[in-house]
């Protein structure tokens, strides 16, 4: 079947005061979030149209303000089961033939599996790979990690066990700290996971990282399906495709932390200033470019497990895909934000 794609309209298109449903004026330091999408629904956002009105001259706000005037957050399931704002994080992706082969490989081989460079176990011994040491131009913080394994989470748990570590070094290449990514409850301690477990580690906040390295070990018990051409192996059998990539998330300043109206206008496709001769500018319309596609996620987490509970719209421990706008300044009288977007709905017949 086909269900038509329609333009988001009506009250649902507006950001509303969560404490005052129906109130679309979110001035007054309100944080407003889009609602969770039901299963089968998708929202494609192209822009946010803002109506900004003030009692005072808006030109005063064209200068850089120490605190942001607005913050816009896009929460996406960037990696399976990991929700983060793609505009607020830089992703370090370690993967590919060069990263794998420049590291140290024991009982593994980097192979092209279904077109993706993958570390594949060889023979039957324990598997070990350590990446090269990556220097950063300046110290960074890494707070989340997600990794891709070739095997699905539906793979039987007894097929293999693995561990993944993030190693932090100083400028003299001395190991300072180890984060055990595969021990989500206690990253400071070693831990192994099986393929059915989530492949993420969050909020471990590794600070002042000047050099880092990734270490992967695995104990493979069973093999899986492969059909590939490769260079010849003498006397060894191919095991299981394992690691494909490790993604480290580094928090960065988002462009959508808008410190001035000048920044707002520079991010916008269109704007209109309501100017009257000799009068201060008190009203403006802005179409802020923001491209995001929101979908329903099976890993969404809600406070009280109820997506309809309004507390989800503010609770920082509710994770689902949303766009959130926070008006941080108190110098505005009216802020109305409307989403420009299209809604898609699908249904798989049973």
């Amino acid at each position: 079947m086909i269900i038509d794609k329609i333009q988001l309209a009506g009250l649902d298109a507006y950001f509303q005061d969560p404490n005052n449903p129906g109130q679309i004026n979110i001035a007054g330091q309100v944080t407003s979030r889009t609602k969770p999408l039901g299963k089968g629904k998708q929202l494609e956002i192209s822009a946010i149209e803002l109506l900004i009105e003030s009692d005072s001259d808006l030109t005063d706000l064209f200068n850089f303000q120490p605190n942001p005037l607005f913050s816009i957050t896009v929460m996406k399931e960037m990696f399976p089961a990991m929700f983060a704002d793609p505009f607020r994080h830089r992703v370090h992706s370690i993967g590919g033939f060069e990263d794998f082969k420049c590291g140290t490989l024991e009982n593994v081989k980097a192979m092209d599996i279904d077109g993706i460079p993958t570390i594949v176990s060889i023979g039957t011994g324990k598997v070990y790979w350590i990446s090269p040491l990556y220097p950063m131009p300046e110290s960074i913080t890494i707070n989340h990690a997600s990794w891709e394994l070739a095997a699905s989470r539906k793979t039987p748990p007894e097929n293999f066990k693995y561990s993944l570590k993030l190693l932090k070094f100083d400028s003299n290449h001395n190991l300072i700290q180890t984060v055990h990514l595969t021990n989500p409850n206690n990253p400071s301690q070693p831990g192994n996971l099986d393929p059915t477990k989530p492949r993420k580690a969050e909020n471990f906040d590794l600070k002042d990282v000047g050099f880092y390295q990734i270490e992967f070990t695995a104990d493979v018990k069973k093999d899986t399906a492969i059909y590939e051409k490769h260079t010849t192996l003498i006397g060894k059998s191919i095991g299981t495709p394992l690691l494909r990539a490790v993604n480290l998330l580094e928090p960065v300043e988002s462009v959508y932390n808008i410190h001035s109206l000048q920044e707002l206008l520079s991010l916008s496709a269109e704007y209109h200033l309501f100017e009257n001769q000799g009068q201060p500018i008190k009203k403006m319309l802005v179409t802020l470019d923001l491209s995001a596609t929101l979908v329903h996620s099976d890993y969404a987490k809600f406070m009280n497990n109820d997506p309809n509970d309004p507390i989800c719209f503010t609770d920082p421990n509710s994770f689902y895909e949303f766009v959130e706008i926070t008006v941080r300044t108190d110098k505005l009288k009216i802020v109305e934000a409307k989403l420009n977007g299209e809604v898609l709905t699908k249904s798989n017949g049973k």
């Binding site: 093999d223 899986t224 399906a225 492969i226 059909y227 590939e228 051409k229 490769h230 260079t231 010849t232 192996l233 191919i238």
Partner: peptide, 16 residues
């Protein structure tokens, strides 16, 4: 041909 170091002269089929 197999004397090339990176010659893909083997093909493996492995099934669960």
């Amino acid at each position: 041909s197999f004397e090339f170091l990176d010659s893909d002269i083997s093909a493996t089929k492995q099934e669960v």
